[in-house]
Design a protein around this nucleic acid. Structure first.
Lengths: 204, 204
DNA sequence: TTCTGTAAAAGAAGATTATTCTGTTTTTGC
DNA sequence: GCAAAAACAGAATAATCTTCTTTTACAGAA
């Protein structure tokens, strides 16, 4: 299982072979050269196709970027949903959110790096509405889950607006630093610390 | 005092008038159109100069971006240093770091938005070394300050690698959401919550 | 199988935009 | 006042995204 199983799940079959290949090579370029510096020419060269084929499948550079971005985001969210499904308490849920986030980043560092890099571009481009809808949906579901643990939710003594920031803010910040090489220790090694700290930060 | 006092402080005097003007108009364009979509032509048009003048002063688009980025980062850091200077305990210091961060973002929302947007571009471009040096220096100084409160530093029971993430992660996350319009309440209104939560998250 | 319409693919041409280069004007230091 | 350096202007160049036209492959019907 290579790092591209995410694409095979999303664009299956023989017909989509070139489509997948373009996405693979594009991701490689985006990671290697950066989103900005990657040219259509470079992608074309890597998968030995033509500009015509690329534009036929994706319309423009933004189209490639968005396809990759949404594929990665979906995979990350599926991972979260699986972890979250079995949780029976708020405490467990908070641990799941943080644990699944750290796990996913460590398991897919290239994809994670790409997600951080590409977000702002997608947020401005032609798929900004789709991004907003997805984020809103994700936020709604997570909120429902966290507030759905009955009286125990009294543990959350913070305004809900800031709860997500309190939970994932530190993990996100540390993962970015790790992916950028500013710190060496794997985020997974601090799983307990981040989860415990987040839990404490919610109390009053 | 308009939003450009930051530039007047950094590029003072009559000689730098055009330089400042180019930076002002460029910042306007970056904010309005996005960093990617801003063309040299657009900047040129807004300050009624020539491409020659722009390239004479900044070398390339990246040069404009970096000059703006470092100006903003310096101002933010100066603000932090002022707040931090008078602190007499670790508890006060943590409150200062968070308070000054939230204050600065709310006082300079356009600059803050720009800082978030431009960081990745600067981190890849020709000024990546300068960025690294600045970040390393800032991190070193902050670390020294936080660990310099004698025995009381025992309050920090976390590995120091993750301490900065624990302190500023949630605030940063929330400020981004606020600048993107995903939440309405001003970060300043949650000053106490973020500071208290961060403090609690450090204990064990 | 042969025909036909649709999708896939190729690559040349067009349009946009960053950058360079050359020349001119202005300012500075002596 | 004069030489040297900096500031400025704009045409020319080069890189790169996107569109357009043409050719090829393929799936389903007659």
């Amino acid at each position: 299982m290579n790092q591209f199983h995410i694409l095979e799940k999303r664009f299956p079959g023989r017909r989509a072979a070139l489509k997948r290949d373009i996405l693979e090579q594009a991701l490689y370029c985006f990671i290697e050269l950066g989103v900005e510096a990657t040219t259509i020419e470079a992608i074309k060269a890597r998968c030995e196709t033509s500009v015509g084929a690329i534009y036929h499948h994706f319309g423009n550079k933004e189209g490639i970027l968005s396809a990759l971005f949404f594929a990665a985001q979906d995979d990350q969210r599926q991972h979260l949903d699986r972890e979250l499904a079995n949780t029976k308490s708020l405490h467990e849920a908070v641990y799941s959110v943080i644990g699944s986030y750290l796990d996913w980043v460590v398991a897919n560092p290239e994809w994670a790096r790409f997600l951080y890099q590409a977000r702002s571009a997608v947020a401005k481009g032609p798929f900004q509405e789709e991004l907003k809808d997805r984020n809103a949906k994700g936020f709604r579901e997570l909120k429902a889950k966290l507030l759905g643990f009955g009286n125990e939710s009294n543990s959350i003594v913070q305004p809900f607006e800031i709860v997500i920031s309190l939970i994932v803010g530190p993990s996100e910040n540390y993962c970015k630093a790790w992916l950028a090489g500013r710190v060496q220790t794997s985020p997974r090694d601090y799983r307990e610390e981040f989860a415990e700290s987040a839990w404490r930060s919610l109390q009053r």
